[in-house]
Structure formats: C-alpha cells, structure tokens
Design a protein around this nucleic acid. Structure first.
Length: 467
RNA sequence: UCCCGGAUAGCUCAAUCGGUAGAGCGAGCGGCUGUUAACCGCUAGGUUCUAGGUUCGAGUCCUAGUCCGGGAGCCA
C-alpha cells in the first residue's frame, strides 16, 4: 500500500498502471452501476482534471460508505492504478479501501454538478474555489505571481514589502486599527473643539492605507538599484465597475538610470513574459478558459506575443481619434483625458493590439512625472490592452529639484510634506523611472474573465468585504 | 457617485390585458447502464427582495428603500 499521498496531477501525467497509490480530494460527481461498482470523479485542486475512481461493490464497507459519497464530500482512497478502458482518461484508480473524510449533504450543498452564475458564486466565495473555473484562476494567479518574482529576481531587482488589511475582528491577538472613509472631520463639528486631534492618534498624525508604494520604491531604487514592490493596494474610490477593486494587488518596479524608453521596453517584456509563462505552465487551465470562458483568449494572447507594442504619443493618439471619421460621446481635444471609448477604439479597432500611449499633457498627470522641454507634456506612459484597457501606468520621474518644486506648486502640494522626496533630488539625484501593473487586470487579460471580482479570491468593493 | 436594467423553487429563468405560480437543471426515490455534461420515470420543493399604496383581486400598476448586473467617471 502506498503510504504517501499522490496528487491527481502527478498520477494523470506520470502514474504507471499496476502501481499502488493513495489519493485524497473532493468528489465532483458519482455514477453508480448496479452491476456492482461505482465511478467517482475526484478532484484535489492540483489540476483541472478529475481522477476517475472505480469502486467495486465487494470493497470493504461499500454498502454503507457509497451512499455518503456525494458531490462535495471529501475522500481518501487507496488502490491500484490501471489503464482505463474509457476514452476520456489514460488511467483510473481501482479502490481497495476508501474513507469518507467528510460528508456534504446533497440537499444543502450549494454547488451542483452543473454551471452556476459568477454572481451566485460570489455569494459563496468560501466554496467557489471548488469549481473548475475558480480552481483554474487560483492556479493561474499563482503562476503569474511566481512569474513576476522570477522576472525581477533574474534581473537583479530587490523585492520590497507592503502591508495588509482585514475587516475580520476574530484574529484574536489584540487591538486593531479601524479603517474608515467616514468624514471624521465633519463628525468632529459636533464636539466642543470641533476638530479631530490626530496628535492623540496612534501615529500622532492622520494615517491611511497605501495607494501606491512608488514613492518609497524611489527611495530604495536610488540606493540599492532596481527594486519592485508586490503587494496589496487600497483605493477608497466609490468605483462600481468590473475593472475596479478597493483592495487589489499591484506590482511596482522602480529603476535608477532608466528613461521612459527603457521603462516602456521593460513593461512590454514584463507582460509578454507573464503571458508566455502562463501559456507554458498552465496549459490545461488556459485551454479551459479558451473553451469555456472566452473562445478568443488564446488567439489574443498569441497575437500579443507576436507583435511589438505600438508606441503612440498622446498627441498622435488625439490626431488619430480626430481623423477617425466618427462621432464620440465625449469630444476629443488635446488636453482632455482619453475616455474609455477612445482607448478602446485605439487598442481594439485602430491598432488591434496593445499600445503604449506616452507623453501626456502635464495638466493631466501627477507632480512627480518628468517634464518635457516643450513645457506642455510629461514623460508618462499607459499600456492599454484590448478588452481590459489600462493595465500599466508609469512614467519617468522628475529628478530635477527645481522643476519638481514648481510642479508641486502647480498641484497645490506642500513641499514641506515631501521633504524626504525632495532630498532624493538634493543628494545624488539620478534619472529614474517605474510603473505599476494591476495584477487582477493582468488576470482578466489572461483568463478572459469579465469581472475583476472573479480573479481575486476575496474581492473588496464598495459595501462588500465579506469572507 | 451618475444613467439604464433586474430581484419569482437550491440554481438559471418563464408567467399574455391586473384574474388558481410554471419549466429546465439540481435534490430524493425507483429503473437502466464501463459510466464520464450519463439516460428514463415518479415525488417533494414558493412569505414572488423589503415596507407602504391603488384595486373586488397585484409576481404584474404606483411610491420609497435594499441588493445585484451593465454602461460612465476615477484609476491599476
């Protein structure tokens, strides 16, 4: 008898007929033959495919146990691997013993053998990873995460860390920070002093959750060379769309001695590497997405790999839109933000591939982006991909102290608040650049999934932080 | 936050003009079968999102609210 548990993935790939093996997992479905045996489809999450278990009625305890083998139940099986006469699998496991570890009442278990809407599955986020789709998403998300680390580690980047949030009050180990978007300043108007004295707060000043690790990334990038952050990021915007989360994961590399062209080249190589890794390491899951979620996703990804991302300046983009010969819901004019309809036209219809729009008007972008000599634009870049839209935003950073201070003035920021950011320019300033990649948007591109709430295990959106 | 649309069985949905609440899937039971989205038969399963209102009568019409989806803005 095999004492060590094998994964279903390894058995389906390498399992030899005649070998004794031990598996455990969750029942997807059971089919009985009254001629004296039952078929069980077992899944352990190691791969998309199930292992077919054949249980003979002569197996010890069969009569009593087989009734408890229902969809969702957990099982441990010991038996012998054999070639399968069926056409849908190479091998199957003939059980010599099987134990029901945990039952799943079929009258109550929410997951049925047939498909469920993603909206329904969001309500049972604790069970949805037991479905084909969410198991595949979990594996691809893991693959992408590893691919990201490998990409930067192979290039000598240092990984810098970032924080975490929870609404659960059952972690047990003491007082927790309250996070709120309630207007405390206004609530304070009903108090005698009519002010919130953050001096008495934990940090002695008003504190928030991070919306980006970029500025801190610059600190290390101008000390130890290229770095990247990869962690959760929080935005309290009241955004209710299939592309926004209040808590999402972002990758932010920051590179000294990089200009915008270097930045764009790295971003393109980065995205293509992630796609390549997902296709080669999660082939079975990717085939599933192409078959069941979006029949164009593999062709789209292959097309992306085979073409260079088109560089288009903001000014060129505006010209293209103005000469497109069609009406826009939002008028196109230099100096205005590109609207979603404009971005979609450019990447989905005009170029039909990912594009990098660069050198935006300075009035549209934050203070830290490097100003061009034309006095009108900054060295910003957005990577736009079909269907998903903006997947990367980045820029070359302004390394000239005087220009930076001027820009802070234009943006009504107090340079004293950013004294340390200024110091990076006062002492040994260097040209540098970086960008941010939204992990979940990358997953939308890879999987063909429509809603960003379905590519993160536990989505946080306005009015929703369950599980 | 704004503009649309929606909420009916465990799930996905139907219900004509305001007139007895239906189907498929799932579940239970039985049959059949080296099966594999199995198949065939029978049975059970409903506070029609909530609170008001109109009406002889409301799933259906009106008002308010809650939640969900799509689009927009913000962005990654």
């Amino acid at each position: 008898m095999a004492a060590t548990r094998s994964t279903i993935k390894s058995l389906l790939r390498d399992g030899q007929p005649g070998s004794d093996v031990h598996v455990a997992g969750w029942v997807r479905t059971r089919r009985d033959s009254k001629q004296g045996f039952s078929f069980i489809e077992l899944n352990d999450g190691s791969c998309m495919a199930n292992l077919q278990i054949v249980v003979d009625a002569a197996t010890p305890g069969y009569e009593d146990a087989i009734r408890r083998v229902t969809t969702g139940a957990s099982l441990r099986i010991v038996g012998t691997l054999r070639e399968s006469p069926g056409s849908k699998q190479r091998v199957e496991l003939h059980a010599s013993t099987f134990d029901v570890l945990g039952e799943a009442d079929p009258a109550k278990y929410p997951l049925q053998k047939k498909g469920h809407s993603f909206e329904f599955l969001r309500e049972i986020a604790h069970l949805r990873p037991r479905t084909n789709t969410f198991g595949a998403i979990a594996r691809v998300r893991n693959c992408v995460s590893y691919s990201i680390h490998r990409f930067f580690q192979q290039r000598g980047f240092l990984y810098i860390h970032t924080p975490i949030i929870t609404t659960s009050d059952c972690e047990g180990a003491g007082e927790m920070f309250q996070v709120t978007t309630l207007p405390l300043d206004r609530l304070a108007e009903g108090t005698p002093t009519k002010t919130v004295d953050y001096g008495h707060d934990f940090f002695g000043k008003r504190a928030s959750l991070t919306v980006s690790g970029q500025l801190e990334g610059e600190i290390y990038a101008t000390a130890v060379g290229p770095v990247y952050t990869f962690g959760p990021t929080f935005r309290a915007e009241n955004s209710n769309t299939p592309r926004h989360l209040a808590e999402f994961w972002m990758v932010e590399p920051e590179m000294p001695f990089f200009d915008l062209d270097d930045n764009m080249a790295l971003a393109e190589e980065f995205i293509k590497t992630i796609i390549q890794d997902a296709l080669s390491e999660c082939a079975e899951d990717m085939a599933f997405f192409n078959e069941r979620i979006d029949k164009t996703v593999l062709a789209t990804l292959t097309h992306i790999l085979e073409h260079e991302f088109k560089r288009v300046s903001y000014t060129e983009a505006v010209d293209i839109l103005l000469s497109a010969g069609r009406d826009w819901e939002y008028p196109v004019a230099w100096g205005h933000n590109l609207q979603a309809e404009h971005e979609r036209f450019l990447t989905e219809q005009h170029f039909q591939q990912p594009i990098i729009v660069h050198d935006y008007p300075r009035t549209l972008k934050p203070f830290y982006m490097k100003c061009n000599d034309d006095g009108q634009t900054v060295r910003a870049m957005d990577v736009l991909v079909p269907r998903v839209g903006e997947i990367i935003g980045g820029s070359q950073r302004e390394e000239r102290l005087d220009v930076l201070l001027t820009r802070m003035g234009e943006c009504n920021l107090d340079p004293a608040e950013y004294w340390w950011y200024g110091d990076l320019r006062r002492y040994g300033t260097v040209p540098h650049a970086g960008f941010g990649l939204g992990l979940e948007r990358m997953l939308l591109l890879l999987t063909g999934m429509q809603n960003i709430r379905d590519v993160i295990p536990f989505p946080r959106t306005p009015r929703n932080a369950d599980f």
